[in-house]
Design a protein around this nucleic acid. Structure first.
Lengths: 99, 99
DNA sequence: TTTTTAAATCGAAATATTTGGATGTTTCGA
DNA sequence: TCGAAACATCCAAATATTTCGATTTAAAAA
């Protein structure tokens, strides 16, 4: 999987905010803890993050738009999982700069 | 080398702009072509990028502030080199999300 | 059915970033 | 020494992002 420039830009921008990094970390830790597929409802994140619900929703949207998170609906909850494939591709993009 | 959250944020933000990505790419290619230490004067970048000189300077400043580029003065030219160590640390930060 | 809950969307204000012109600083060359 | 060249810095305008309250949508619960 190769990411075009626009995608790289979006991903980088999405990771360039403290709240969005916090969200990603929370979901990642959750996934590591309970191995296998895992659900992270928005409400948990809102509780954790001390921003208005609409603001958290907006941040999540940017992470989803960047394909860093995969969103699914589960009843009236939202479920987010980390898109490892995209992270892998992003790391591959960065690799040439690191070596 | 470990990067704190603020640094991760800065780096991500610095990479979240098309012109700055272009600058990084140009310098990276330059370094790969002529192996060993290499110089990339600002004037080349200005020519390449079709933005005002002050704007290019501003973009470079952000890359330097994020420690993605190391700046040195060489006479009246500026010389920029990629900070591989920081890229490596950034990749290390991302790794847990990719696997 | 009506109410409640979870989350997305809208609209507007506050804040931050991007951009270029003008100017300043340093260095090289004439 | 003087002028030009290479960058950096300052300022203000244009643009984008962040934030929240209010509203909307959809699903579960009463």
């Amino acid at each position: 999987m190769t990411l075009d420039n626009k995608k790289i830009e979006r991903i980088s921008k999405a990771l360039g905010d403290p709240y969005r990094l916090k969200i990603m970390h929370a979901i990642m830790k959750m996934e590591k803890a309970q191995k296998g597929t895992c659900s992270m409802p928005c409400s948990n994140l809102v509780e954790m993050i001390d921003l208005a619900q609409s603001t958290v929703s907006h941040h999540i949207k940017q992470l989803v738009d960047a394909d860093l998170l995969i969103a699914e609906k589960e009843g009236r909850n939202a479920k987010y999982t980390i898109n490892k494939e995209v992270f892998n591709a992003y790391v591959s993009f960065l690799q040439p700069f690191a070596s």
